[in-house]
Design a protein around this nucleic acid. Structure first.
Lengths: 207, 207
DNA sequence: GGGCAATGTTACAGACCGGTCACACCCAGT
DNA sequence: ACTGGGTGTGACCGGTCTGTAACATTGCCC
């Protein structure tokens, strides 16, 4: 059949790319390896030669998602070098693209829902990825001089997670539509709290 | 096998109760009707006499979830009659029970993730439920005199959705641990904004 | 051109799943 | 005691799924 992607990519890449799309559209348990191989313009045998099992393929896809996300963070820092507050606002805008322009949520979070077994090989990748994301966000908040950096990071994090999962039940026109407004309000509130009160502290530091 | 639940309940109830638990633990696509019937102390044939298909059973389970939730809202109002702000804080506590004491998230949201087909019969139930929940929350905010009631409602809603989905990737000790603190801060910020600024308005109303 | 590794093709095995059938059973209401 | 509706039992069908085996084919490098 091979409806798409007979491009110059090697089979391995095509399989991962196609699998990611089909996993996303039908769920990991809702699509078979045969359909993935077909759609990738190859066949089941070569798929199994590159990935020993479907679970291995799933793990490879999630690692691909993680790598893609690393690029986003690199872009974020490159766009506003040395300006963590601007990076924080930019992060919010990037998150908004996910939260308003897409109704199938975060691949990692979806995988965590679908792969309920606690010993699934993908769980490790998911947990590592999400913790890394949250830690990067917290570092950004800290570097931006937010006092309660962890609280703001967790607030923004839960906001994004909530928006992306909410899209799947009530659509992008639901509460997620206010994503940026809510996020900006959060940042503003914590930033104000960080500059208003501790004048005594700052004065002491100067003196 | 019938490891559990040979109680006095009629088969239909036992099946729904068991199905809900197994769906929750293994995912809807991760458990078969045969296993559900076994665990419920009955058999597949009886299951199919009560529910025409597995999808029907799924819908029935989700309706059961919705009914249980209605009770929670009734309890909330009964506990603090005529005091919407107290109900709002109580709602946050109830949400916290889900967000810190459970790592398998919201059944409805999980179903939305797992049942990716846009025409699945359960989708209607999920959407209706989630919208009703969000609307009730917005009404509570409005009744509590919050000016930007919709914004607060959406913020709290996304907070809860995020916490419950986040539990499945990073556990209850992750950002969800700050659920109540974050929620209280949100309510406080919006409540302050609702009493501080509009003194002119209130004065005008009195005069 | 020869050779070798990667890829394609077909068929198959084994398991599981949703769903149905025919028939035996139990037990309450009359 | 009878009867009838709800229930239990096991077998079965057709389909789909992951994963494998054996063999043909392509394409690249020397």
């Amino acid at each position: 059949m091979e409806t798409a992607d007979a491009g110059p990519m090697k089979p391995r890449e095509r399989i991962i790319k196609t699998a990611r799309e089909l996993f996303r559209r039908h769920g990991m348990r809702g699509i078979g390896v045969d359909a993935i191989a077909d759609q990738a313009g190859t066949n089941k045998m070569t798929l199994y030669r590159h990935f020993g099992s479907k679970d291995d393929l799933i793990v490879a896809c999630l690692r691909d998602v993680a790598a893609e996300n690393d690029e986003i963070w690199a872009d974020l820092e490159a766009a506003h070098p040395g300006n963590p507050l601007a990076q924080l606002h930019a992060w919010l805008r990037v998150g908004a693209e996910c939260a308003v322009g897409d109704d199938r949520g975060c691949d990692m979070a979806n995988a965590a829902v679908e792969l309920a077994e606690h010993d699934h090989p993908a769980r490790h990748v998911i947990e590592e990825f999400k913790k890394a994301h949250r830690d990067r966000l917290a570092k950004l908040c800290r570097d931006a001089g937010i006092v309660k950096a962890d609280m703001l990071a967790d607030s923004l994090w839960l906001l994004l997670e909530g928006a992306r999962v909410s899209n799947q039940s009530v659509g992008t026109a639901g509460p997620s539509a206010h994503f940026i407004a809510i996020g900006d309000a959060m940042i503003a509130a914590y930033a104000q709290e960080s500059t208003a009160k501790p004048e005594a502290t700052r004065a002491a530091a100067i003196a």
